[in-house]
Design a protein around this nucleic acid. Sequence first.
DNA 1: TGGACAAGTAACGTGTGTTA
DNA 2: TAACACACGTTACTTGTCCA
Length: 268
Amino acid sequence: MRLICIGDSQKNADGRPCSTLSEAISKGHISLRITGKEGVLSALRHFPSDIAVIQQIQPNPMLVQMIRNNRFSIPILIITRESTAESVAAVLAAGADDCVPITMDPVELLARLRAIVRRVSGVGVTSQTITIGRLMLREDTREVLVDDDMVPLTHNEYDIMSLMVRRRGNLLNKSAILAALYADREKPASKTVDVMVCRIRQKLRKRGIQTPFKTSWGMGYRLNEEAFLPFGARHEDDMEFAPSSARESSMPITAGGNITAGLPDQHQ
DNA sequence: TGGACAAGTAACGTGTGTTA
DNA sequence: TAACACACGTTACTTGTCCA
């Protein structure tokens, strides 16, 4: 496994791995390359790696957002010294694959690194394309296709769709979506997310995807993977046409601020 | 069951890019 | 440079859900 270690704190500004990561690397016979956050894009471009590890004092979505905005689909694990549920949710929503404390046992850290790499390189996922049944998301061209028919999404609509697909299986609340879309900009009203999700739904509905997202009342949205399964592979419930103002789900999800963290991850 | 609140949606205003 | 198209955000209204 090839690992690129990115320093995003004063203590590890040049990317030198912390002791926990160093031990995991030595146990796992991992080839290591280090970089500071200034040279991260160049390093990712010139030194293909299997996974990126960002070391931060507190989870900060800006660096993850920058990597994703430059269309690097490399899996990202964040090692952090101090974290809150909200800050972990923000980096996961921005596109990180995992966020772990620096106190984690090196053995578990190594296992997580391997699991993420295995998951991302698995069936249905390539570095540029994610496929879920009839849905194909091309990250290199920022295109979304249903049955090979392109869905004309705007920039923000694509970003929400991409976020939903990459975090499929996880519930995403509106603030997390806004944090991912507007990492370093002033965020609009959360109602904006409702409107953009509604527009995506309308466009997908025209292509026969009736309930692309499940709504959890008061909590957020989740990708409805079954809606994208080919006809005949879906449950009866999903074959029904939803009303125009569909409330796909009203089942309350366990309350809590960090609703994206701690749930099973998405890539199968 | 009804009020409060959240979510869905259409309509509209504004900003920006494109084109003649 | 004006006209136009489009994306985006806001507003207002409707609908659905929760809870006392």
